[in-house]
């Protein structure tokens, strides 16, 4: 394939964002469910592992779509879910705040186009 004009790359990346938005929202939903379970003290090992994986995947991709802050936030969530946040009430509150910020960032980008 021949290289295309660079301005077209941005347009193509935007199309990819739209295509993969449902996947990113699914990952966000996994985090929100885990946060809620953590707050209710019913977080299972499976939920924690799923939340850790979802955060890892968000961290790996959000920055490529221009959401560098999203990558930073998702990395924090990944680290917190790699440990045992149920033993630390402060971590539970921090995770809720991180996920809320991620939701806001994604919604803002979604609504900007």
């Amino acid at each position: 394939m021949e290289p295309i004009a660079l301005p077209l790359l941005e347009e193509a990346i935007q199309k990819m964002w739209t295509k993969f938005l449902p996947q990113m929202e699914e990952r966000l939903a996994i985090l929100e469910e885990a946060d809620a379970a953590l707050g209710a003290d019913i977080l299972t090992i499976e939920q924690r592992s799923a939340a850790n994986a979802a955060a890892h995947k968000l961290a790996g991709v959000l920055g490529s779509f221009g959401l560098t802050k999203g990558t930073i936030l998702a990395r924090e969530a990944e680290i917190l879910y790699s440990g045992e946040p149920e033993t630390d009430p402060a971590a539970a509150a921090q995770l809720r705040e991180i996920t809320a910020q991620l939701r806001t960032l994604i919604e803002e980008k979604k609504n900007s186009h």
Partner: peptide, 10 residues
């Protein structure tokens, strides 16, 4: 991860 694959390929 298909999103990573496709963005990298693009």
């Amino acid at each position: 991860e298909d999103d990573i694959r496709e963005v990298a390929a693009l």
